[in-house]
Design a protein around this nucleic acid. Structure first.
Length: 279
DNA sequence: ATTGAGACCTGTCGGC
DNA sequence: TGCCGACAGGTCTCAA
């Protein structure tokens, strides 16, 4: 998409979690994507008109990219290796779109980009610079977890005085941007911290980082870095093997730990942890 | 002001 | 085989 123009925009189902912007397709066609970036779980396409196309995948959303130059695509994708069913659905797309393909972008580069989202929790917004800057969620996002700005001091400051649990704090996008339910559990396990402890325990009353803040910050960076490396080009969600997520009743993977993974509900979400090595 | 619960929507899976 | 409830990766709103 980057550097390419929207030649055709097909909205096949305009009612995602939020309704589509007025005249969404008409406003996109003819515009060029100046840059394609990410902030937290949001994707941003900066457009030639200075507007931004803001996209979120929700729970079940995904983008499928298909190019006209098939040979180029095959070579490019070999390293990651698409799963067999995804290749099959790619072949089908041209003739019989999936009923959950809600938006289709046809780009001047020859790429066709389909946004598919069975649960329709995803969103697409088209925002002026002013409305982008004032976006109620985006403007409040915390630091990028893999940036230098995210360190033990920043995490401790954000958690200072918080009565909520560590798990809930990690899911709060204002504290750190982009962690979801899986990697919140994973990071707490790596850090050896119980998801049920109060978030405030990682900071001194003055907001300075305790050792737990250092361990947690390092653990977040570690699990995300590993996940990105593993996920590049593959179906990460289905293929991934997690330390604790979705492993209730199994042995704790920490060397020498005799614990068994438990699942508990916190703030309406499943949390997985080892009650022996996470304190 | 913070916090947790419920809502949004569809698909899948396990149990009976 | 078929039906039913539980559960799923994320926000967002509302009421306590």
């Amino acid at each position: 998409m980057q550097g390419a123009r929207f030649d055709e925009v097909e909205v096949r189902r305009p009612d995602l979690r939020a309704p589509f912007p007025e005249r969404f397709a008409a406003r996109l066609v003819g515009q060029t994507v100046r840059a394609l970036t990410r902030r937290g779980k949001y994707l941003l396409a900066a457009l030639s008109s200075d507007e931004t196309l803001l996209m979120h995948l929700g729970m079940s959303g995904w983008f499928h990219v298909e190019r006209l130059e098939r040979r180029v695509e095959r070579r490019g994708e070999r390293r990651g290796g698409l799963s067999a069913d995804r290749q099959a659905s790619a072949g089908l797309a041209a003739t019989a779109p999936d009923p959950h393909d809600h938006v289709i972008f046809r780009m001047s580069s020859g790429a066709t980009v389909r946004f598919n989202d069975p649960r329709r929790f995803g969103t697409m917004e088209l925002l002026s610079p002013a409305r982008l800057a004032a976006h109620p969620t985006l403007s409040l996002l915390g630091p990028e977890p893999l940036s230098e700005a995210f360190d033990a001091a920043a995490l401790a400051r954000a958690c200072r005085g918080k009565k909520t649990s560590l798990k809930a704090a990690l899911l709060d996008q204002r504290i750190v941007a982009g962690l979801g339910n899986i990697y919140a559990s994973e990071a707490l396990h790596v850090a050896g911290l119980s998801p049920r402890r109060r978030a405030a325990i990682i900071a001194t009353p003055a907001g300075a980082p305790r050792d737990a803040a250092r361990r947690l910050t390092a653990a977040i960076k570690q699990v995300l870095t590993e996940a990105v490396e593993r996920a590049a080009g593959s179906d990460e969600y289905r293929d991934a093997r997690f330390r604790v997520y979705d492993r209730e009743g199994q042995r704790c993977p920490r060397r020498g730990c005799p614990g068994t993974i438990v699942r508990r509900t916190q703030a309406g979400r499943s949390t997985f942890s080892c009650p022996v090595c996470q304190r």
